[in-house]
Design a protein around this nucleic acid. Sequence first.
DNA 1: TATGGTACGCACCTGCAGGTAAGTATTGAG
DNA 2: CTCAATACTTACCTGCAGGTGCGTACCATA
Lengths: 116, 116
Amino acid sequence: MGKKIQPDSCGLGPAFQVIGGKWKALLLWLVHQEPRRFGELKRLVPDVSEKMLIQHLREMEADGLIHREVFHEVPPRVEYSATELGISLDEALEPLAHWGKKHAEEIAARRREAAE
Amino acid sequence: MGKKIQPDSCGLGPAFQVIGGKWKALLLWLVHQEPRRFGELKRLVPDVSEKMLIQHLREMEADGLIHREVFHEVPPRVEYSATELGISLDEALEPLAHWGKKHAEEIAARRREAAE
DNA sequence: TATGGTACGCACCTGCAGGTAAGTATTGAG
DNA sequence: CTCAATACTTACCTGCAGGTGCGTACCATA
C-alpha cells in the first residue's frame, strides 16, 4: 500500500473547508483591515443575509480565524477582528486575489464570448 | 459615487468563479504536474463522477486554464494539460495549499472538539 | 458476431448552502 | 408607555451544484 489515492493531497482541502463559504473570504478580508462591528459588516456587504453573516462569523470564530469581543454597553456592541491564524490565511489568500484582479478582464471577456 | 460598496472588492471574485467547483483546484493541480488523460484523472480521483469530471474540465478549458488535445487513435485518447494562465493560477494557489498543509492538524482538532 | 476499452452525452434526482421574514432582549431617549 | 437601535435567533423554503445510471461511437481483437 502507500499508493493510496489523493482526494485533496494538495493542501487545499483544509483551506477550502475553512473559507469555502460564499462570503467568508470577503469577511476575513474586511475584518483583517480593522476590527469591524456586526452592523458595519452588514452595511459593507449588503447582499449577505443576516443569517449567513452570523453563521459565517461564528464558524470562523470556531475555526480560530477571527476573534469576537463583546462590549457590555447600552446599545449592544460586538467587534470582530482577525486572529494570527486568520491573518496568515488572509495573507495566503493574497496571491490568489492578485491573480483575480490581474486576470479579471480576461476571464470576463472569455465568459462573455462563451455565452455568445 | 466612488464610495460604492464592495461585493468582491478584494480580487477573489474572479478567482473563485474559476476554481470554485468542487474538484477544479485538484484537477488543475494534477494537470499541472504533467499532461493527464481522461481515464487517468478518473482513476486518480475516484470520488468524482464522470459527469462532473468532463463538466469541470470543459469549463476550465473555456476559461483558458487548461488545454485539451485529441489524438486520433484507435482507442480514443485525450490529454489535458495546463496553459500558462492555468499554471499562474496554480502557482497563486500554492500559498493557500501550503497554509492548508501547515494548519491541517490544528483545524481538524478544533473541529473535533467543536463537535463534542 | 461479439466483446471490450476509451471518452464522452443526457435525463433524472437529491441534499444542502444559502435566502426570506419574522421574533427576542436590553435600555435610553422622548 | 411607546419607540428606536443593536445584535442576534428561529422556522421555513428554494435553487442549483453535484451524483446516479444508462446510452453512444469508434475500432481491434478474437
